[in-house]
Design a binder for these strands. Structure first.
Lengths: 210, 210
DNA sequence: ATACCAAATGACCAAGTTGGTCAAGATTAT
DNA sequence: ATAATCTTGACCAACTTGGTCATTTGGTAT
């Protein structure tokens, strides 16, 4: 990929990321067809000519972004300790990783969500090979090694996991606004996560857990 | 309102709702500015001339929809029994009401969500007077008369309520796809709700509740 | 200073879409 | 048959679209 887009990758990283984020944002918000290259260059603060110098056309830019985002996410996800057996510790690790990605590419996940719903004929066939599994691999990515025996016996585990997921999702969305408001937000954001995990651990685990 | 839009309200109800739903959909998906009146008339299967006969211009149509949707939702919400003190029974009642609205105007809530994020200068000032409270009044609409003493003493009630809300929200979204797939779906959809409510009741309430 | 070159620019293009109009045709009521 | 009302879609000027390319820019080597 780097070889193909050598012109683009020899840019200063700051400029490169400005372009990536501008394009991700526009495609995420408007879908492939309605996304405007004019808007992208305006947001990225580069000229129209430059964009079409780095990428031959809109389609190429779009498919590059898809490849790139999947690669970046894969790469950072590899850092998670998949041997941790406690679901809440695992979830917190995943949350941290997602936060890292979000800080660098705020629209990456929205872009992927939009890709999953995309139906522009010009890119639909190319998208398919990526597969919905990878796209949806936010939280669903394997519960391998999770110790489910910690859960109470009188509740459905799959449904309980759904509750946990929806809670994380909902809380993350609520926090996003706050994160966006402040310039440089550190990991203190995660303190409140523990409150929610504590509640759920206390309620969903057998008494005297771990 | 009915007086102002008399031309529109003297249409056959079926046609009227077709237009409303087409417009809600287009505005919900694209926001005020990018929404296309051409798309609306195509989806509603009426002519361009008719639309601009019922409404003088795009802005008038948009503001009408906002008024109308708020009114419809208010009206149906009035049916809820606000004396019920059990939070899960209350939530189920609200869920039923929302389901009713959804069946008639599938894009109504998405439209309101889009309105809340709208920032087109042409309509922004007119929106403000509606106020975000009304817009966000999905589940947040008052926990009056709810008996919070049923909850365990060792968990934060506000956060627990958030968990309940996010669960309902997440489950509703998951179900929406299924609902859309079948032509006429009855209330059997709500059976699975009880499973989730049972889990949460068992976990969040004091033991031996009611 | 000069010559050179890659990178960046934005005016420009044809093609298409926009919100909105209105004369002409279709329907209904009298 | 006449009048009154609805509905239609071709049409409009204004604007946006993805993409091009002659020109300018800024840096480097001489």
């Amino acid at each position: 990929m780097i070889i193909i887009y050598s012109k683009f990758f020899s840019l200063e990283p700051e400029k490169r990321e400005r372009i990536i984020n501008a394009a991700l944002k526009e495609f995420a918000r408007n879908g492939y067809e309605k996304a405007s290259t004019n808007e992208i260059v305006k947001e990225a603060e580069i000229s129209k000519g430059s964009l079409f110098n780095y990428f031959n056309n809109k389609k190429e830019l779009y498919l590059f972004l898809l490849d790139y985002v999947v690669e970046v996410i894969d790469q950072i996800y590899a850092e998670v300790d998949w041997n941790e057996t406690d679901i809440f510790k695992r979830m917190k690790a995943i949350g941290l990783v997602k936060f890292k990605i979000y800080k660098k590419f705020p629209e990456a996940f929205n872009f992927l969500k939009a890709v999953a719903h995309e139906d522009a004929t010009e890119v639909k066939s190319e998208i398919k090979e990526i597969g919905e599994q990878i796209i949806a691999s936010g939280f669903e990515r394997g519960y391998q090694n999770i110790d489910f025996t910690k859960f109470r016996d009188d509740i459905d585990i799959q449904k309980t996991i759904n509750i946990i997921n929806w809670t994380i999702l909902g809380f993350a969305e609520q926090q996003r606004d706050e994160v966006d408001s402040f310039e440089d937000v550190g990991l203190e954001v995660f303190d409140e996560w523990d409150d929610y995990f504590d509640i759920m651990k206390r309620c969903f685990y057998k008494e005297e857990g771990e």
